[in-house]
Simulated scan of single mutants.
Amino acid sequence: MMQDVAVAASTSALSPIALFLQADIVVKSVMIGLLLASVWTWTIILSGSMALGRALKSSKGFEADFWKSEDIDKFYEGPGRQDIPAAKVFSAGVAEWRRSVRTGKPVDRDGTRMRLANAMGAAAGAEIDRLSDRLNILATVGSVAPFVGLFGTVWGIMRSFTDIAASQNTSLGVVAPGIAEALFATALGLFAAIPAVIAYNRLLHKISKIEGQLHRFGDAIHMTLSRELERA
């Protein structure tokens, strides 16, 4: 009976909450920082995934609507004003087209083509930069969190050795709590880092798909307007 009570007490002493409460201020600070980093990471993962999903879906829908339209100018004044990546690329191209062609002067075809490509490329790049704005946070957490957790582990083990030296007792009962709380810091570091690294790669893949789609759409618009130039 006494042995069962001792085992239960030992188990409760090694629970995550107990390990946190037993840790000193340095290890506690490390644990709190890693937990906050984990919450921040999951916030970025969820919001970023939804934003990229919406951007990809809306851009595909916009492109489909564009190819169904028969009047570029009318489409520009309507759906072309939407705040979505494909619409921004389209609007940049049409705006540059209007500035270059509707001047009352002879049209510089080669110069216009170059400006169209630059305008739409810049618009696509700006949209990709906006969509990938917080990916650097995931990369930072993924690379730094394990080392922060390792720092907490090293500090906790140093404290455990200090306690062993002070008590002159090397039994497992004396050593285990301190080492357990130290290793718990490493576990929290991995808990924050692993989702961040996986999400970073997945979101980067989605951004690459959107970037490719925008550039292909921009090239298609460029070809359409280039054909119009031949009639100008």
Rank of each mutant, 00 (worst) to 15 (best):
M31Y: 02
S132V: 15
T140G: 03
E77A: 00
S58F: 10
I137F: 13
L46P: 06
E63T: 15
L34N: 09
A122M: 06
V30L: 12
K68S: 13
R54P: 11
L116F: 06
I84S: 01
R130L: 04
V144L: 14
F151V: 08
T112G: 15
R99M: 08
D73K: 01
V107D: 05
Q82G: 01
F147C: 08
V154E: 14
I32V: 15
I32D: 13
F151Y: 10
T153E: 05
A87I: 15
T41S: 13
L35G: 08
M158C: 07
A92F: 08
P146I: 09
S47H: 08
S100A: 12
K105R: 08
S132D: 13
P106H: 11
M50K: 14
R54A: 12
F147T: 06
I45E: 05
F147S: 05
L52R: 01
G152D: 10
A139L: 10
L34C: 03
A122K: 04
E63C: 11
S69V: 01
A87R: 03
G142D: 14
F66M: 11
Q82F: 02
S58M: 10
T153H: 04
S49R: 08
L35A: 02
I32L: 14
M31C: 05
G111A: 01
G61I: 01
W155K: 13
I137P: 15
L56N: 06
E70S: 06
W97N: 11
G53D: 06
E96I: 15
E127H: 04
D110A: 12
E63Y: 12
K28E: 05
L138M: 11
R98A: 03
M50W: 04
I45K: 12
T112K: 02
F66D: 09
N118H: 00
A92H: 12
V94Q: 00
D71F: 02
I157K: 11
E77G: 00
T140H: 02
W97F: 10
K68D: 13
D83G: 03
T103G: 13
A123M: 02
A87Y: 08
V144R: 11
A139D: 09
A86G: 14
S29H: 00
V141E: 08
S59E: 09
R98Y: 00
E96L: 09
R98M: 08
V39R: 15
T140Q: 01
L34F: 07
R81E: 04
T103W: 04
E70R: 11
G125P: 06
P85D: 13
S132G: 15
D83W: 04
P79H: 05
G125N: 02
E127Y: 11
G48Y: 07
W67E: 15
A117C: 03
F62I: 00
S49T: 14
N136R: 02
W67A: 12
R81V: 01
V144I: 04
I32T: 15
F147K: 09
V148N: 03
A119I: 07
D65P: 14
F75D: 00
T112Y: 00
V39W: 15
R98H: 05
K57F: 08
F66P: 08
V148Y: 01
A37I: 09
N136A: 07
A124K: 03
E96A: 06
S91T: 09
R115N: 10
T153P: 05
M31P: 04
V101R: 10
S132E: 13
E96T: 15
L131Q: 13
G80N: 02
K28A: 11
I44H: 02
G142H: 12
R115L: 10
T43S: 15
F66C: 10
D108F: 06
I157S: 09
